[in-house]
């Protein structure tokens, strides 16, 4: 078996290009969903959706980020086990992030948690690595805004709470969030696993294409039910009242311990941004 060598420099360059691309305009699937929502709204809610459509156009033309919160840099690496990366992986990712946020004129929002001293270059990134089959590296870059991140939650439910308890927890998260996470939102949901793995699954579920159907028929149905229940709260775009608070719910499930029923909800605003590539 041959081992393929990939330099840290090429990894850094890929991360750089992905963030330069991802930070400027929300994903096409989200923009399409927002346009669909606009046709169903009236009054102030329709006005903000009109502004968002115009905003995306301006961002594309001017290369100004559509949202000033260009986020904390979340990076997922699926590393083929037949790849040998020459150099420091973490440093390569941070170097790509550092250069992208500098050259893209993106906001540097990362600081020390307690002292609140800005690191000045939006590093460190949050890095999730997985070893997979093959000799390629798949990279996902997600600049994640924190207005919506602040509304996210993990619940360690009791097994007796069941599906209904899980749904109630998720709807309650949306009810408490109200206008804060910049709706229309996309919700990533992780059910099962452990405390941290449920949150990991929830965040990673945001990478799925908005409008795509869950491969698991039961989860697909749950996603529809949850979206309808959340939209029935009537908060609408920006919380100004209307039918479109939630564009999509994406659920991922994993086995858990017999004593628990973890559920995590990851909020993302309408500026859902990500890009990926393979090297």
């Amino acid at each position: 078996m041959s081992i393929r060598e990939v330099s840290a420099a090429s990894l850094s360059q890929a991360v750089y290009a992905l963030f330069l691309k991802a930070c400027v305009v929300p994903c096409r699937d989200v923009l399409d969903a927002l346009e669909h929502a606009r046709q169903q709204e009236s009054g102030p809610a329709a006005e903000v959706l009109r502004q968002l459509a115009e905003n995306a156009k301006i961002a594309e033309e001017t290369r100004l980020p559509s949202c000033q919160d260009t986020g904390m840099a979340i990076v997922y690496l699926d590393i083929g086990r037949d790849v040998h990366i020459t150099g420091n992986v973490t440093e390569a990712v941070n170097d790509g992030v550092r250069r992208a946020y500098r050259d893209g004129y993106f906001r540097k929002s990362v600081l020390s948690a307690l002292d609140r001293v800005n690191t000045g270059d939006n590093t460190p990134a949050i890095l999730h690595e997985r070893i997979v089959e093959g000799d390629r590296i798949h990279i996902w870059a997600m600049p994640k805004g924190f207005g919506s991140e602040n509304m996210s939650a993990v619940g360690m439910l009791k097994p007796s709470d069941g599906v209904e308890g899980v749904c109630n927890f998720i709807v309650e998260c949306a009810r408490k969030a109200g206008p804060n996470p910049c709706p229309p939102v996309v919700l990533g949901v992780g059910i099962g696993g452990s405390f941290e793995y449920a949150a990991y699954l929830a965040k990673r579920a945001l990478l799925r294409e908005v409008g795509s159907k869950n491969r698991d028929a039961r989860l697909a149905e749950l996603e529809t039910v949850l979206r309808e229940r959340i939209n029935a709260l009537g908060y609408g775009p920006m919380g100004l009242g209307g039918r479109n608070y939630c564009l999509a719910v994406h659920i991922d499930e994993y086995p858990t311990h017999l004593a628990s029923l973890p559920v995590a909800v990851s909020f993302c605003c309408h500026a859902l941004r990500h890009a990926d590539c393979e090297i």
Partner: peptide, 13 residues
């Protein structure tokens, strides 16, 4: 007053 969250490029203009 409310500005539209996430309309940063439009507002910059």
């Amino acid at each position: 007053l409310l500005a539209t969250g996430g309309a940063g490029a439009l507002l910059a203009k």
